[in-house]
Computed example of a mutant assay.
Amino acid sequence: MIKTRLKNNGLLLALAVVLLLVSCDKKRVFDEYREIDGSWHKKQKIVFSFEQQDTVSKYNMFVNIRNNNDYPFNNLFLIISMLQPDGVTKVDTLEYLMAHPDGSLMGDGFSDVKESKLWYKEKAKFPKPGKYVVSIEQAVRETGKVAGMEQLPGISEIGFRIENTK
């Protein structure tokens, strides 16, 4: 009976900790990840879709990258497309620094896996209410080569996050 009570108390404590951690992220509006199978093919689009009804407030948007020591470059080029509810697509080509001058990976994490929270849009408004679709693809090229990397190693997950600015 005491073991059962202790086990139940442990479960309640674990549940309380999880709820506390989830509820602390008050800025989060949207936050999802897609797993990559060890390397990111140049034609593989990572797609996120979400509903947005608020066209007045401003939001910050981020691309989250989880990579490991197999990532061979100090930067990352991404092509990010946002399809709006009215059929208009906005496309950005962005470059992000991923490693320090000594070659060590930037980002948060204690192991060889690092997570980088990369700015996509700052203080942006959504022009129309409805469904938005964000597509992300890698556009990394080796120095002196025109063709892109067929397979980009070292990327394990891609995430997309929207936060309130308040």
Rank of each mutant, 00 (worst) to 15 (best):
E142A: 10
E150M: 08
K117Y: 06
A124T: 11
A14T: 08
A124H: 05
C24L: 12
S156T: 15
D86Y: 05
P101L: 10
K125C: 12
E150I: 09
S81R: 14
P129T: 11
K45E: 13
V134Q: 06
A124G: 03
H41K: 11
E137N: 03
E142T: 02
I36M: 09
N67Q: 12
K114C: 02
N164V: 01
L13P: 00
Q53D: 13
I162P: 02
D108F: 06
R28I: 03
Y33C: 05
V29A: 02
V140S: 05
F62D: 12
Q138R: 04
F73G: 02
I36T: 07
L11R: 15
K26V: 12
K90I: 09
M98R: 07
N9D: 14
L21T: 07
A16G: 06
G109S: 09
P72F: 11
K131S: 09
Y132I: 04
I155V: 15
I65K: 07
E95I: 14
C24R: 13
K26S: 11
K121L: 15
G159I: 09
L21G: 13
F73T: 00
F77L: 05
A147E: 14
K26D: 06
Q52E: 09
K58G: 01
I79R: 12
Y71Q: 10
M149W: 12
S156M: 15
E115P: 01
I36V: 15
L118Y: 12
Y96W: 11
V63Y: 04
V133F: 02
V22S: 05
K128M: 11
F110Q: 07
D112N: 08
R28K: 05
G107N: 09
P101G: 03
L97R: 14
G159D: 12
I158P: 01
A147G: 07
V146H: 10
Q138T: 05
I136A: 00
L83M: 14
D25I: 01
M1C: 07
K3I: 10
K7I: 12
K27M: 04
K128H: 14
M82H: 09
G109A: 06
C24G: 04
G148Q: 10
Y59L: 00
F110A: 08
F50K: 03
G130P: 04
V133S: 11
L83P: 02
Y33A: 09
D92Q: 14
M82D: 05
D108L: 13
N60D: 15
E142W: 03
L19T: 06
M106I: 03
I65A: 11
R34Q: 14
Y71R: 10
V133Q: 15
E163I: 02
V91R: 13
A14K: 12
V140M: 15
A16M: 10
F160G: 01
Y132E: 01
F160T: 02
K58Y: 02
V63K: 06
K7C: 09
L15W: 00
L21Q: 09
N75T: 07
L12A: 14
V134M: 05
V113Y: 13
D86E: 14
K7E: 13
L6E: 11
W40Y: 06
I155H: 06
T89M: 00
M106W: 02
T165A: 10
K145Q: 14
D112Y: 06
M149D: 03
Q53A: 12
D54Q: 11
V63E: 04
F48D: 10
L20P: 00
Q53Y: 04
I158G: 04
I162G: 03
L20F: 05
K90R: 08
V91M: 08
L83C: 08
N67L: 13
S111T: 15
G103D: 06
